[in-house]
Nucleic acid binder design. Structure first.
Lengths: 150, 150
DNA sequence: TATTGTTATACTCTATAACTATA
DNA sequence: TATAGTTATAGAGTATAACAATA
């Protein structure tokens, strides 16, 4: 798994300075997430599935909506994760057509470890800034991204 | 192409507040890049290839290094882009084993339009911040990401 | 011998279309 | 009829291993 070179496309894609920096930061962050995933034999999509289901039980269609994917794509995605024992399917109690998906104990365990791992893996980047700068960056990003649900 | 829901995994993956915000911003930015790519029938990887080659001529191996992919992966990637007339291959002048890759005129044209398109597509997000905040955000991101080459 | 690129192979990710079972 | 999920199919993206050509 060779390491990428996030800076280059960032510089070439972005329109202005801020867009450049955002694209650059996005590639750097995604590279970290991909690496954390790869170290656990998880694609970025599987990582997202674990993250989304960390505190939720969702039907296939709702999971597809969260990921921005087609429901037919979910079948294989969930199949593979289920085969690895990371999540489980169960028929919905309220709708005979629907299938709920949720983390298995092993999946929840892995999700928890990944959660911590991502934080540690991002630290070398974030610790380039002093604590006060980190707080300012967080505030600006949160303002830019709008109010969180939850 | 259904729209994703970047906030959720962000909240669930990140370790602390800043990591959360970075992951959230990365997913939001990647969603924009993916959308711009998809509107032009380009995957994120093909978008990166165009961006990287925008002002460069590289051999297959160097391109693979920039992307963080195996050289064998490049063959198919370049094949498909070449088949679409976006880039070209030529034998290296200095090394009989090597193959140079570079944008075709059409590829360069598309890359230029994508460049502008990305800037415009990111604007709704960045313009949530006042101009002074935008400058502060850019400065902080650039400090965090370290000095650019070029 | 080592390196460059391709080929062969296999698996994951993704979408579209057609199907089934339920609502 | 409409919705939930799966299956069938196809194509892109990715890696590993083996190979040919060149250095």
């Amino acid at each position: 798994m060779p390491a990428p070179h996030p800076t280059e496309h960032a510089r070439a894609i972005g329109q202005d300075g801020l867009a450049d920096a955002l694209v650059h930061a996005a590639f750097a962050t995604m590279a970290v997430l991909s690496k954390v995933g790869a170290e656990n034999d998880l694609s970025l999509t599987q990582l997202r599935v674990l993250a989304i289901l960390r505190d939720r039980r969702l039907r296939m269609t709702a999971l597809a909506d969260y990921l921005g994917l087609e429901k037919s794509t979910m079948t294989g995605l969930v199949d593979r994760a289920e085969r690895r024992g990371l999540l489980e399917r169960a028929p919905s109690a309220s709708d005979g057509r629907a299938v709920d998906v949720f983390l298995s104990p092993e999946g929840a365990d892995l999700a928890g470890r990944l959660y911590a791992h991502v934080g540690r893996s991002l630290a070398p980047m974030t610790s380039e800034l002093a604590p006060a700068e980190q707080r300012r960056l967080q505030t600006l990003l949160e303002r830019m991204l709008g109010p969180h649900e939850s």
